[in-house]
Simulated scan of single mutants.
Amino acid sequence: MSDLLQRLRGRGWRMTAQRRVVAEVLAGEHVHLTADEVLAQATARLPEISRATVYNTLGELVLLGEVIEVTTDGRAKRYDPNAHRPHQHLVCSGCGTIRDVHPSGDPLSDLPDSERFGYAVSAAEVTYRGRCPGCATEQGP
């Protein structure tokens, strides 16, 4: 059973067949699917699932804090089930692939007091950008 399914069961979330399929599609590391990609994979597993059910389930998972909405470069929202382990994202500027990364530094402590402007900073989002090996190869030297 996936980590996401275990967390949802632990919360007592009502696990219908449709919700289970959406959670199964989101299982794994480095999963950052769009809603349409979730729908396509969910439909392959459960043909009767509707677009509205997939979108509503994704919305519920975000509200529960079990899935993170990720948006990069104005592209479609993506859904990241790695909501309980602090991480940042590495995005390919060519194909848009997103990978979870775990830098050793703390972005909150890296912001000097002089740059906080009196804010009580509680979170930081850092996105690393570059070209994945496949896109770097396609571009050439």
Score class of each variant (00 low, 15 high):
D106C: 11
N56V: 10
R14D: 15
V25I: 07
G12A: 08
R75I: 01
Q88K: 01
V31D: 00
L90D: 06
T16S: 15
E66Q: 13
G94H: 06
R129K: 13
F117H: 14
E37D: 11
P133S: 12
A27H: 00
Y55R: 15
V70A: 04
H30T: 02
D80H: 05
L4T: 06
R20F: 10
G94L: 09
Q18W: 04
R75V: 07
Y119K: 13
R19Q: 05
L108I: 05
L39H: 12
S50V: 09
L46C: 01
E69C: 09
E37G: 04
G96Q: 02
V126N: 03
L4D: 03
D80Q: 04
S114T: 10
A42H: 00
L90S: 12
G28R: 05
C92V: 05
C92H: 02
G28E: 06
R45Q: 13
Q139S: 08
Q41E: 15
G74C: 10
Q88S: 08
N56R: 15
L90W: 15
L4N: 00
Q88E: 11
E48T: 14
G140Q: 12
L111R: 10
A42T: 03
P141G: 11
V31M: 01
Q18H: 07
L108R: 10
S93W: 07
Q139Y: 05
A76T: 12
E60D: 15
G130Y: 04
D36S: 11
E60F: 14
S50W: 09
C92T: 03
L8C: 07
Y119T: 08
Y79F: 15
Q6A: 11
G59Y: 08
R9Q: 15
A35F: 07
E29M: 10
H89G: 01
T34E: 01
R20K: 14
H89D: 01
F117S: 13
R131T: 09
K77M: 05
A23E: 00
S122C: 06
P141W: 13
V91I: 12
S114E: 12
A52M: 05
P133K: 07
G94R: 08
E138A: 08
P112E: 02
S2H: 08
G65R: 04
A44D: 14
G118D: 03
V101W: 09
L90C: 08
A76Q: 09
Q88N: 02
V21C: 02
E69G: 08
C92R: 04
M15S: 07
H102G: 02
T16N: 03
Q41A: 11
R51A: 12
T43G: 00
V38M: 00
D110N: 09
M1K: 11
V54R: 00
S2Q: 02
I98W: 05
L46R: 10
G12F: 09
C95D: 06
S2D: 06
E69T: 15
E29D: 12
T57P: 00
L5C: 03
G140T: 10
F117P: 02
N82A: 14
H89K: 01
T127A: 11
P133E: 13
D106M: 02
S114V: 05
S2G: 03
L8F: 06
L5E: 13
R14W: 12
Q18D: 12
R116N: 00
